[in-house]
Design a protein around this nucleic acid. Sequence first.
DNA 1: TCACCATATGAACGTTCATTGACCTGTCAT
DNA 2: ATGACAGGTCAATGAACGTTCATATGGTGA
Lengths: 199, 199
Amino acid sequence: MSRRILDEAARLFYEDGFPATSVRKITAACGVTAGSLYNHYQSKEEVLYAILKRAHEDSERLLEEGLLRGGDRADRQLAELVRELTLFHTERRIEGLVARTEWRHLPPEQAKEVLDAQRRVRRIFERTLERGLAAGRFRLSDPRSSRPAPVDVVAKAILDMCINAGQWFRPEGTVSARELADQYAFLALQLVGAGPPDA
Amino acid sequence: MSRRILDEAARLFYEDGFPATSVRKITAACGVTAGSLYNHYQSKEEVLYAILKRAHEDSERLLEEGLLRGGDRADRQLAELVRELTLFHTERRIEGLVARTEWRHLPPEQAKEVLDAQRRVRRIFERTLERGLAAGRFRLSDPRSSRPAPVDVVAKAILDMCINAGQWFRPEGTVSARELADQYAFLALQLVGAGPPDA
DNA sequence: TCACCATATGAACGTTCATTGACCTGTCAT
DNA sequence: ATGACAGGTCAATGAACGTTCATATGGTGA
């Protein structure tokens, strides 16, 4: 039932947002009454925290795995990272969006935990970009402009792309999550000016 | 005072979300009491609607202008569109984020208006992408994969990039809004596989 | 000077909120 | 059979919510 509460709450937070979702709505969706939630969680906030924690742990683990699978070539690493992140945010779009938008409603200490997790994810991408630049595999300088695009800006551009795919992706659409992940990996490689993947 | 209410409400909706922002908080930020809001707007919802309407009208106008400035070459058009959209969402990040996230709390008819406006923006990008593909200026096919990335997917990727820049951009940071817009225009061109801009 | 109008106030409305605590009811090990 | 216990119900709490309304006030044109 704890798990059931988490899933129904995530769905409702996704549809209406945390403040607009009452404890009564959550528990009604589970077929019980409001007071019963407090046998499993100390507060409505704790339910949100549990959802966010699970989502962040899972996505960080998936990214680490993707990084390993990419071997030591930065372009392959980037492709794997983009694939994993896009997959996560399309296959688990409800938790993904909630994690992205509702952390503001947590108490400061727990909100900080979420921000730290987001920062760690960004660092993973930044390191891969730095390695690819050092190896001459990526090109981020506009020939017309004096300064190249900073690595953190490029990382954020790619992250926003992947993360927000969950907002519009629909599993019943013409493109499957896996196809989309492949297409995004390709687009990200073009975005950083990576050459052809052979060699 | 009507304008003041709009601006303070936008800031509060941005910080806490629409449902968590009470009429009393909005009016207190303007130095008046709750009842006074109803001399200017019929409801809290109408305040949100007014904010969203203003933002969408302005952003659509800016995009149309950018499209004209791009002339008849799809790559220049795309660069201008990305520049305008990034500028809008960084310079007016508060309204931009509110428009992107809080429309769910509007009544169905007005929510539909917002979705229609978002769809029109996406269509502008899609048309430019289609023209660039037809002219052979963009390359969206992965040589390893059978199918090319669909135009609507690419449009969404670029839109998410630009729109969500407003989430992390800080005016006091090292990169100015205008620099960021230029960098994003460059990244978007690389993303669609556009060749060098000369010729 | 006066009437008017826009706009502010502050109290009150009914509703809903998250949370609590007393109570009930099955299940299971002893 | 019995006792413990996990997990449910139900009623009640005070606070906060959006909104209404009668009333006050200050500036403006006649």
